[in-house]
């Protein structure tokens, strides 16, 4: 049994221009010790997936309409509000994209990390204070005793993101969800944060969901990739298969539109058109309006996510076959 299993998840939001479906039946699973990358453009539903797992979908205007999220054998959507909260931070932790906004501006960072222990009633050996200092040392913050008493605005962007990460790993959770943890950072700092995440990954057997639109980070960290488009998963594959032999035309387009060092091709081909309007998605396959391979069937039938090889799936009527 997988550590985390998401099945047929549908999430919608009320907006002034109508009801939009942010997730349209998303299914995936995560094993212990595995890093799964959720890859897609902004608006594809990656962050909403994380929110749904953490019970952070704002209601109203949002609502989980159907589906299931199973964690360690328990159905999360059937748990009470407080039972969900007890799992969060403790066994499933979330790292936010923008650490400056995600840290509370009026409390010292040490206090905010220590709060993890306090909320879940943990008493680490040597006391909470020592645990916090040890964590700050472990993530590479110099002079941790002094820094713990400082406020978020007194740290650099990279440091703040490290503190977010320290907070997430404090209670050694089973699942760590990182929601674009490097997007808001400079490129050099990005590399440091990715290194830190890689170290954490090596040290624990936690499963990690890594949400990103950055193929480079995916290649560096992920074991498996789920590509998302317009609220659906359109392809899942292990990271090598995806880079070598993507099946869904969207994945192929995504790979072609980003620079790579491992091939000789130096021409970047952007995907034509723009992401579809979530209020009025095209009928059938949402990608068909931008897809070079689209035919009449694509406008009539939504392609289901089907197994296209050992351990890999794609949702396309006319998958790309390179071999």
């Amino acid at each position: 049994m997988a550590l985390l299993e998401v099945e047929d998840l549908q999430v919608s939001f009320d907006t002034a221009s109508g009801r939009i479906f942010a997730l349209n039946g998303v299914s995936f699973s995560l094993e212990r010790g595995e890093v799964l990358a959720l890859l897609g453009e902004s608006g594809s539903g990656k962050s909403v997936t994380a929110s749904a797992i953490m019970d952070l979908v704002p209601n109203p205007p949002g609502a989980i309409d159907r589906g299931s999220i199973r964690f360690d054998g328990a159905e999360l959507l059937k748990l009470s509000r407080n039972e969900r909260r007890d799992l969060c931070g403790n066994r499933i932790a979330l790292i936010f994209q923008d650490a400056l906004a995600a840290l509370n501006p009026v409390y010292p960072v040490g206090w905010q990390i220590a709060e993890m222990y306090r909320i879940h009633g943990r008493n680490p050996e040597g006391g909470v204070e020592k645990a916090v200092i040890d964590l700050l040392t472990a993530i590479g913050i110099p002079d941790p005793e002094r820094r713990a008493r400082q406020y978020p605005h007194e740290f650099s962007g990279g440091m703040r993101q490290r503190i977010m990460i320290a907070m997430a790993v404090a209670l050694e959770p089973d699942v760590i969800i990182a929601d674009e943890p490097t997007t808001a950072l400079d490129v050099t700092i990005q590399a440091q944060v990715v290194d830190l995440l890689a170290t954490i990954r090596k040290r624990s057997d936690a499963g990690m969901i890594f949400i990103t639109h950055d193929l480079g980070v995916v290649a560096e960290l992920a074991d498996r990739v789920a590509v998302m488009y317009a609220g659906r998963i359109v392809e899942t594959a292990n990271v090598f298969e995806l880079f070598e032999d993507a099946r869904h035309p969207y994945s192929v387009g995504l790979l072609a539109s980003q620079p790579r060092v491992d091939t000789d091709e130096d021409e970047l081909v952007p995907i034509p058109g723009s992401a579809p309007n979530p209020v009025a998605l095209p009928s059938g396959c949402a990608f068909r309006t931008r897809c070079p391979r689209a035919e009449r069937l694509c406008a009539e039938v939504i392609p289901p996510l089907e197994t296209v090889g050992p351990g890999r799936q794609a949702a396309c009527h006319f998958p790309v076959l390179t071999a």
């Binding site: 407080n82 909260r85 979330l94 936010f96 906004a101 995600a102 840290l103």
Partner: peptide, 13 residues
């Protein structure tokens, strides 16, 4: 605000 989402994600009731 995002920091309130963080607090919820940390498990605060």
């Amino acid at each position: 605000a995002t920091f309130v989402r963080t607090a919820r994600a940390k498990g605060a009731r």
